[in-house]
């Protein structure tokens, strides 16, 4: 597992948004994003980042304490030590107080043409 320097998340909310702060769980530590812009309300785009400087075991986006959060698309830019920066995209998912969604992906394995 690589050491994550920073990651930046961009979340496009669908029809049902939420007004609570957006939390993530890094290695089971629940935290808020830094440098937040936009919101997680209906149809809006939320952006935030975090300087981690730690090894990634798990990283999840946490659902709201009340109501549901319909996410249309999640885009995460990872900057890991000794790796090229890479971006991972996820599709639609709905979160609530009992769920969170995995947004961690290892750096892509290099492929070459043969």
């Amino acid at each position: 597992m690589p050491k994550v320097n920073t990651f930046k998340v961009k979340v496009q909310t669908g029809e049902q948004g939420m007004s609570e702060p957006v939390y993530f769980n890094f290695n089971n530590h629940k935290m808020e994003f830094k440098n937040v812009s936009g919101s997680a309300e209906s149809g809006k785009i939320f952006e935030g980042d975090f300087e981690v400087n730690s090894f990634a075991h798990s990283l999840t986006l946490v659902g709201p304490e009340s109501g549901k959060w319909e996410i249309e698309r999640i885009s995460i830019e990872y900057d890991c030590e000794n790796e090229k920066p890479y971006t991972i995209q996820f599709g639609a998912v709905t979160l609530d107080k009992a769920t969170e969604v995995n947004i961690w992906q290892d750096p892509p394995i290099p492929a070459f043409d043969v």
Binding site: S58, T60, V62, G63, I88, Q89, F90, G91, V93, L95, K97, A98, T99, E100, V101, N102, Q105, I109, P110, A111, F112, D113, V114
Partner: peptide, 27 residues
């Protein structure tokens, strides 16, 4: 909380409708 696993959206690794046989290797 229950952790949901959703597949990452992968972009096509080949240009569409290429007449050539294209092959990518990934160890």
């Amino acid at each position: 909380r229950h952790v949901l696993q959703i597949p990452a959206i992968s972009e096509s690794i080949f240009p569409e409708n290429s007449p050539a046989v294209l092959i990518k290797a990934k160890p």
